[in-house]
Design a protein around this nucleic acid. Sequence first.
DNA 1: AAGTGAGTTGCGAAAAATTCGCATTTACTG
DNA 2: CAGTAAATGCGAATTTTTCGCAACTCACTT
Lengths: 131, 131
Amino acid sequence: MGVMEMNELLQSCGLKCTKQRLCILEILNSADKPLTAEEIHTLTPGTALSTVYRILDKLLEKNIVIKTTIPLSDGIFYELTANEHKHFAICLACHKLKYIDICPIHNTTVSDFTITGHKLELYGYCRECVK
Amino acid sequence: MGVMEMNELLQSCGLKCTKQRLCILEILNSADKPLTAEEIHTLTPGTALSTVYRILDKLLEKNIVIKTTIPLSDGIFYELTANEHKHFAICLACHKLKYIDICPIHNTTVSDFTITGHKLELYGYCRECVK
DNA sequence: AAGTGAGTTGCGAAAAATTCGCATTTACTG
DNA sequence: CAGTAAATGCGAATTTTTCGCAACTCACTT
C-alpha cells in the first residue's frame, strides 16, 4: 500500500490525513508481524503514546486494523486488516510463528451470514521441536 | 468436562487441585463464550483477583486455556483450549457473535509443521445487517 | 495565499488492568 | 497427621490505557 492509497483510505473513512496516521499505517503495512501499541510508539518518534492509542482506536473503529493476541506471547497486538490474510502457525514448544500460504477457507459458506474476511491460526509443533 | 476430569487434568500438569482452580475451570467449561478476567473474578466469589490472574497464567502456561480478543469487543478474553473448536462468525455491523459448526480445516497440512489445533474466526454481515 | 473551524495532537494526570511481595493457608507425600 | 512445597489473600506497586484541555493542523473557503 503506497502513501496515495493510505491517503484515500483515510479520507474515505472521514479521517483527516495527518503525518502521525500515515506513519502508523506505514509501520503496520511494512511489519511482518502484528505489533503492540508500545512497539508502534517506539517506531513513531515524536508522537505521544496517547496519540498512538487514539489513532489505533480510530483505525479499529473503521475496521482498518484488527486487535489480536498471539498465543504464548504476552500483550495485545495490532495489524492491518488487509494483512490479516497472512495466516500463521504457532509452535507450542518454541513459540515461534511461521507464516503460511495455505488458506482452506476458499469456498466456505455459512447460512445466514455473508463472509467478508477471516482469521486462521494453526497450533502445533515445528520441525525442530517435533524431534 | 466433569470434576473428576478436571482433577486429572490439573494433576497431569503438576498443578495442585484447589477449589479456586476447579471453580475457574468449571466456569470456563460452562461458559458459552470467552470471558474476561474480571468476569471470571465476579463468578468466583471469595477468590482474590490476583489469584484469578495467577490461575489463568498457569492454565495458559499449560495450554489449558487460551487468551484471545474478540473483534469489535473491548478487553482480553479467556476460554478453554478445548472449547476453542467452537468457531464463530462476527458481524461487523451489529458486533454479534454466531457460533458455527463448519470446520474447513479438516485435511489441512503444512510443510514442516505438525498441526494439533487451530482457531478460526469469520468476519462479515449477519442476515439482519445485510438488509 | 490568508482565514476559519472541526478534528487532532501533546502533555500530564487519572483510571483501569495486571503483577508482585510476603505472611498465612492448603494440598499432597510418606 | 506432620512436613513441605505450592497456592492464596491482601494490599501495594507497576504497567497499560484513557481522559481533559490547551495548542496545533488539516481541509475547505474566500
